[in-house]
Write a protein that binds this DNA or RNA. Structure first.
Length: 852
RNA sequence: GCUGGGAUGGCGGAAUUGGUAGACGCCCAGGACUUAAAAUCCUGUGCCUUUAGGGGCGUGCGGGUUCGAUUCCCGCUCCCAGCACCA
């Protein structure tokens, strides 16, 4: 994933790009043609905030930041193809944001509508549903409110089923939790719409239900306070009902607060609705737990079989009728005896204490009684459709993507408003619609472009009359929805990319980033790819074959209670004491104040961050990268602890010394080859370790593990260090074995610590050319050489380890068994006992089961 | 509350997917080198127990399957993340 040019790289970036770079190096060393790109997500709000706060031009601010961050990436030695960089804020790039927008407009996938949008008061910005997930702003974490605005939408809902169903194609390569979060977000729900007549009125209330089979248990129709029927009948309601509804509406309009549980509340409107199946008259209630923006804004309340309806009915003493029973014969104590009778004379759920929400068999449901829930659901929906009061339906939670932003620093929306012709799309040949150099920035949430007549005053592409441009810009997530395709053809001036050129590289083989974009960027990118497929630009459904979500890098954070949120940077401003487990027991600032502490995402602005530049300065880029890869599995959270990095430094220095101590012997005896008669056991042992390591490291890379191959390299380096023969006394065979081990070690180190590896490689080979110039390849693995001469076989008696045998790998079961029984330690436990059974696992173990 | 993931030494974490638990590294202790320190090297390092050889216990807790369970099954506890009345 491309970085936002905030101005400084943090350790999260280092982790992400170190892993990506390691993989790129590994694949290149394996002989693959690798496209390892980088780009800049360079449109967005912080640039504009800087303009408001400090009066700098957003472009200048952004480009300076890119310069700084590119320098940092180059200092850590990321091996990107710098020629292919893309920059979202350049007209050469955003021209195609606009191109796509116009294409989607043609396809009917872009439309404008006035609606309640998510609004972040803190950022003074509009948010898409995805960016407001959980009722909090994705950028600043503050609660989201609503605001009426007219804005452009992209029809993500045209692809809901594909977004769900195509997950099957990427299931193997994506983390399960990301797919899960996406499918929850899309929220497919299969059920039925049912219309209830309103008594004494032509109006009908339509509800959505997934459990039409429970409709005979409905005790009320509950609608949202904002439901049109409420507005329409408000005049007929008593003053206290109206007041209550107003109160609920006011409460609904407040930003969601997840700390406090919402108590069920509501009021009987006095209206009556008719259950179309039973003909029963039901009260119409307003309930605070019914939301206007899901389903139809109205539900049928079935307390006996729905938890929320149960709570609601209990609070207001509404009747509860059980209409579903468990399929299995219910135990005598369940169902029957616990049920209180009610005026309906039907059994009720009062005494049960909770709703029965499983499927079962329908009861008390007129002619439908006796059917299973599954049959009832299907047949009742069909019946409803036949009698024109309902139909089976699938609803989704996913909404269209609102992309209009009242912001300057983004791609202008290429739409023109003409008094005569109405909404007119800009002509393709007039793209890009360029941003002016500057605009009056206020940060108050109004479009700065609306104050720049040179920008918005234009002529209508249709009638040539005077017209005005749309003064909003696109959500920056538009830029990141397709940038990875641009890498394949970054200079194209006619199209976003050439289809054939892109086809060679795409879809992306491996995508790496944080899982915080699970329902934002990753849904948009998938949507965009499907649109591109329908445009004929690509021939596949999914943009990213494999996704790796790396865990956050977090640091210990210290707060000063008095001054509020002030955070101190370790270790110069805080004195910390720890318990035996390394957990902090107290933290005191240099001024002597006691501080609160916790763990938070590491960043410079929070003051708990380690600056990558500092790391490089102190330890070097190679050690920093090696440590970040080694410290924890890539998908885990990494709690930053500087102590461990010394280990990485020591390891690199050890390898350096190892090469130093052998380079003369190895360099001067290049003719030394394997196969001399006196092949020593030591040489064979080292070669075995070398080849086992090649296999382990390769397998680890293939399965995206970055910590375990480092451990394997450390083992190999230890084995070379333990080699018992002095360089000057080594035989040709031994020289060969050491040269092979060192060469392999250095090559396998390249993905983690490329600078050190490059230097050592050239020294070792004895010429000035390094890994790149030599077009070096990862060492070939030999199964034959990796095979052990002798293997250790544990012997268990009754499953407990009692002895170990050394045996030939090809030893037969009988031989192993005989050796086990001959073993002295084993005999202590078997002598005088009855042998019940002997289990021999070839090449693994022997287990003797005895009795008595 | 629902959903998903997890729990292995003082710490980060390994373990060929049912076969020697604790690789590798950090920390710590002891030693060598040094006038001394740093660096480096060597040794030890799961817990309990034993003079020693050794013995016992041990992968969150309780059960089960198996010759054998960190791994599979059932039931709990706790932690982390996501969602937040989704009808």
């Amino acid at each position: 994933m491309l970085p936002y040019p905030s101005g400084n790289l943090h350790m999260g970036h280092v982790r992400n790009y170190s892993a990506g770079d390691a993989l790129a190096w590994y694949k290149r060393l394996k002989g693959f043609n690798v496209l390892h790109p980088i780009g800049w997500d360079s449109f967005g709000q912080p640039a504009e905030d800087a303009a408001v706060k400090r009066g700098v031009n957003p472009r200048t601010w952004t480009e300076e930041n890119i310069e700084i961050m590119r320098g940092q990436l180059q200092r850590i030695g990321v091996s990107c193809d710098w020629r292919r960089q893309m920059y979202a804020h350049t007209p050469e790039y955003y021209k195609f944001d606009q191109w796509f927008f116009l294409k989607m407009y043609e396809m009917g996938l872009a439309y404008k509508k006035k609606t309640q949008v998510n609004w972040c008061e803190h950022d003074q910005a509009t948010l898409s549903n995805e960016q407001a997930s959980g009722g909090i702003c994705w950028r600043c974490g503050n609660p989201v409110t609503k605001k009426d605005l007219e804005q452009w939408f992209l029809k993500t809902t045209a692809y809901t089923d594909q977004l769900l169903d195509d997950m099957a194609e990427i299931e193997a390569g994506w983390p399960a939790n990301v797919l899960k979060r996406q499918s929850d977000w899309i929220g497919r729900s299969e059920g039925a719409f049912v219309k209830f007549d309103v008594k004494g009125s032509d109006e009908r209330i339509e509800v959505f239900t997934t459990r039409i089979d429970t409709i005979y248990g409905a005790n009320a129709v509950v609608v949202a306070a904002e439901h049109p029927i409420v507005e329409a009948k408000l005049a007929m309601m008593s003053a206290n009902v109206v007041a209550k509804i107003a109160a609920i509406r006011a409460e609904n309009a407040k930003p969601t607060d997840h700390e406090t549980e919402i108590k069920k509340d509501g009021i009987d409107t006095g209206l009556k609705a008719i259950n179309p199946f039973s003909g029963e008259e039901l009260s119409v209630w307003v309930g605070n737990y019914v939301m206007m923006d899901y389903g139809t804004g109205a539900v049928m309340s079935v307390p006996a079989h729905d938890e929320r309806d149960f709570d609601f009915a209990k609070k207001f003493g509404l009747p509860m009728v059980m209409v579903i029973e468990t399929k299995a014969e219910p135990p005598a104590s369940a169902g029957g005896t616990n049920v209180e009778s009610h005026s309906t004379s039907k059994p009720t759920a009062h005494a049960v204490g909770s709703a029965f929400t499983d499927y079962g068999v329908m009861v008390n449901s007129g002619e439908w009684s006796g059917k299973t829930s599954e049959d009832g659901k299907r047949e009742m929906a069909e019946y409803a459709e036949k009698h024109e009061f309902g139909r089976a339906a699938t609803t989704y939670r996913l909404r269209d993507w609102g992309i209009s932003r009242q912001r300057f620093w983004g791609s202008p929306i290429p739409i023109i408003y003409c008094d005569k012709c109405g909404v007119v799309p800009e002509k393709f040949e007039n793209l890009p619609v360029r941003l002016p150099d500057t605009a009056p920035f206020t940060g108050t949430g109004e479009s700065p472009l609306a104050k720049v007549p040179e920008f918005y005053e234009t002529t209508c592409p249709k009638c040539d009359g005077p017209a005005k441009r749309d003064t909003d810009t696109m959500d920056t997530f538009v830029d990141s929805s397709w940038y990875y395709f641009r890498y394949t053809d970054p200079q194209n001036e006619v199209l976003p990319f050439d289809t054939e050129t892109a086809a060679y590289w795409t879809p992306v083989d491996q995508y790496i980033g944080g899982d915080d974009h699970a329902v934002m960027h990753l849904i948009y990118a998938r949507f965009w790819t499907k649109v591109m497929r329908d445009l004929g630009l690509v021939k596949f459904n999914e943009p990213f074959k494999r996704l790796l979500t790396q865990g956050m890098v977090v640091g210990e954070t210290f707060f000063d209670d008095e001054t509020g949120k002030k955070v101190y940077h370790m270790p110069d401003k805080v004195t910390v004491t720890r318990d035996a487990k390394g957990k902090i027991t107290s933290a005191v600032s240099t001024e002597g104040k006691t501080l609160k502490y916790g763990i938070e995402r590491m960043s410079k602005s929070k003051g708990n961050g380690v600056d990558p530049d500092e790391m490089i300065e102190i330890y070097g880029a190679d050690a920093a990268r090696l440590f970040v890869m080694f410290a924890a599995p890539i998908e885990n959270e990494l709690v930053w602890n500087e102590a461990g990095i010394e280990g990485a430094v020591r390891f690199l220095q050890r390898v350096w010394r190892l090469v130093g101590s052998w380079r003369l012997a190895v360099g001067s005896r290049q003719s030394a080859v394997v196969g001399s008669e006196e092949s020593s056991a030591e040489a064979r042992k080292l070669r075995r370790k070398t080849h086992q390591t090649i296999k382990r490291v390769s397998d680890n890379f293939e399965s995206l593990q970055f910590n375990t191959p480092v451990a394997a390299l450390m083992e190999l380096s230890n084995a070379i260090g333990d080699f018992p023969v002095e360089p000057d006394n080594a035989s040709d065979d031994e020289i060969f074995a050491v040269r092979e081990a060192l060469t392999s070690l250095v090559l396998m180190l390249t993905p983690f610590s490329p600078h050190t590896a490059e230097e050592l490689f050239s020294v070792l080979i004895g010429n000035e050319k390094g890994i790149v110039a030599n077009d070096a390849r990862f060492s070939e693995y030999s199964e034959e050489l990796a095979k052990a001469d002798e293997i250790e076989i544990p012997v268990q008696v009754n499953g407990k380890l009692r002895s170990r045998l050394m045996a030939l790998p090809e030893a037969s079961n009988e031989e192993l068994e005989a050796m086990a029984f001959a073993d002295e330690k084993v005999r202590e436990y078997t002598d005088g006992k009855e042998v019940v059974k002997v289990v021999v696992v070839p090449k693994r173990l022997v287990n003797i089961v005895v009795k008595g």
